[in-house]
Design a protein around this nucleic acid. Structure first.
Lengths: 336, 336
DNA sequence: CTGAAAGCGCTTACAG
DNA sequence: CTGAAAGCGCTTACAG
């Protein structure tokens, strides 16, 4: 059966297509009987307006796109769930597109008629992409960086502050030699978390020892190896604690410490970021910073819709996380 | 800056719009110099063809939709990752839409010009939906049930066989009184896993004791409560083992058993389904059935593209899982 | 209240 | 090789 169009409905109902269109969209223009007849026919034929035809005229789709380079990890599950719900609540549908392809990205930004775009593309979206958005005045909200202009906003976590708080927490526990397992320096959170750590060290006048700053790459195995080779290199000088770029990295760190004969937190405290679901099942249970992921999704949708409907303009919204103290961190015990 | 269209490119390049269209699509029709000029202009203006205009003519979008009622859980992360990759490899982009709204579903099936649809809507997609697909000959692949026709196929797990194998494994270990924590009977896997369990019991001439079949609803807490009240009801007769509808349910079951003073697997063996990431971190580590989720995604894409390109037709493809024996199950120890 | 007409941005025969 | 024209399915002034 061929696709049924507005023509089919018009013919079947014995009216003009414009009347069908009006009946389906504009309540008060059409005679009630005519409308009833048209709706009955439309229902019978399973008529659904072709969005391509409609959008060619109206320039509005009530569709938003979420462009992401990945949906791996629990973060996305939580995030997309809340985002999608909020989109629906506000009358939009969300299209999630996983891609790292420049052409696909351009197509979705420029060629599909989305009313607005959420961007979580990390390194797959750079300056040129921003220029494109700006030049064509596409409403957009970034979830992976802090950027804003008149039609573009961002909703991010206040990773710098949380990095600062994690470090401060450890300092208050008596730790002085605090190491950092840095994540990716291409990633907003990676940079910010480290910066927060540096902020705290500076505020308390503690030296940042470069040999205590290891490359963890947000990766469990990579961190495990980095910490293991660090421990082999220098038996003498141990950090009192490590802040890891994320929980996976914290797990790798803890395992490396254990395998080298250290106890966590008795010998070394470890703090992560994210509060991944297994964090509370680990032994020791992981002390970590939890971000309000659902709130990020909701805030992002509100911001984008605000920009689209001209009720708001672009800005950077920064959400605070929460330090969850569990078992992998404790007061400083070792003698110095 | 207003949206740049084919007209803008044509004007700027001093040619007709049909020439621009040909230059961008049909290689061998256009003079090389003309084409070069046109492409240069298109590039300079950030011209991206409006997909709505194009699709109105061509009726092909190279876009597939994945309609799902949820993306909660690790299943989806794995699944969508492999599916998306396979779509890209085959020249399609995948749009993921999370919805439980009939109108949104209808719109995406009929009104958006997707070349084909993946469906994972469970109870939010019933007979009426299938009729709609059939009537309009929409290429579709189900991931949540077994159904097929000329333009519709399914890729599912062979849950019945795996349920059978899980039960058979326990029987071979010496267990006779095997209980089942059933999941949702609205869900394909829920029904099939239980049926497999029943198959095995029958094959081995073991009675299925109705009081050993509890309602777990695929839910940890719900199962915990069901098992706890079961244990309170009858101290005398204990099952030798439980098969749980999924891992969450298995966890609830194990916790209930432990809290009632039983040891797993010494007193009761427990087997789950899914192999969720925490399964191997639990104590005891969970024996479970792991499904080849990535393969399901790949097979689904291949099937749908086959149907669309008329190179294949609808069928039910059933993927085998793998029983992972870990610590929550063991040989029958108790005296009868 | 209803319908004829124009036009959104494209592609595709077709004429030249 | 290039362009004028028709038409995909809609919506929106506008005339009646």
């Amino acid at each position: 059966m061929a696709k049924v169009t507005i023509k089919d409905v018009a013919r079947e109902a014995g009216v003009a297509i414009s009347t069908v269109s009006n009946a389906m969209n504009n309540s008060n223009l059409v005679n009630e009987e005519t409308r009833a007849k048209i709706l009955e026919v439309a229902e019978r034929l399973d008529y659904v307006p072709n969005m391509n035809g409609r959008m060619l005229k109206t320039k509005r789709s009530n569709e938003l796109a979420f462009l992401t380079s990945s949906i791996q990890g629990d973060y996305f599950t939580t995030f997309l769930g809340s985002m999608n719900q909020q989109c629906n609540d506000m009358g939009y549908t969300l299209n999630i597109v996983i891609t790292r392809d420049d052409d696909v990205i351009r197509n979705h930004i420029l060629g599909k008629g989305f009313d607005g775009i959420f961007i979580f593309l990390g390194e797959w979206f750079r300056e040129a992409g921003i220029q494109l958005l700006e030049k064509h005045r596409i409403p957009a909200v970034f979830l992976d960086r802090a950027y804003s202009s008149s039609r573009i906003g961002s909703v991010v976590f206040d990773s710098r502050r949380m990095g600062y708080q994690a470090a401060k927490y450890l300092i208050n526990l008596g730790h002085r030699g605090i190491g950092f397992l840095e994540g990716s320096m291409d990633v907003f959170d990676g940079v910010q978390r480290k910066q927060g750590y540096l902020d705290a060290m500076e505020e308390y006048g503690l030296p940042v020892r470069q040999e205590f700053v290891l490359d963890g790459r947000f990766d469990e195995l990579y961190t495990y190896n980095a910490v293991t080779s660090f421990l082999r290199r220098r038996e003498v000088e141990m950090p009192d604690a490590f802040i890891a770029g994320n929980d996976l990295s914290a797990v790798g760190c803890i395992n490396a410490l254990k395998d080298a004969g250290y106890q966590v937190p008795q010998d070394v405290s470890v703090v992560g970021f994210d509060d991944i679901p297994v964090a509370k099942y680990l032994s020791p249970k992981l002390t970590t910073v939890k971000n309000p992921i659902s709130l990020q999704g909701i805030a992002a949708v509100k911001m984008l819709v605000g920009i689209i409907q001209e009720r708001g303009c672009g800005r950077v919204e920064s959400l605070a996380g929460e330090l969850l103290v569990r078992e992998s961190s404790g007061v400083m015990l070792r003698d110095k």
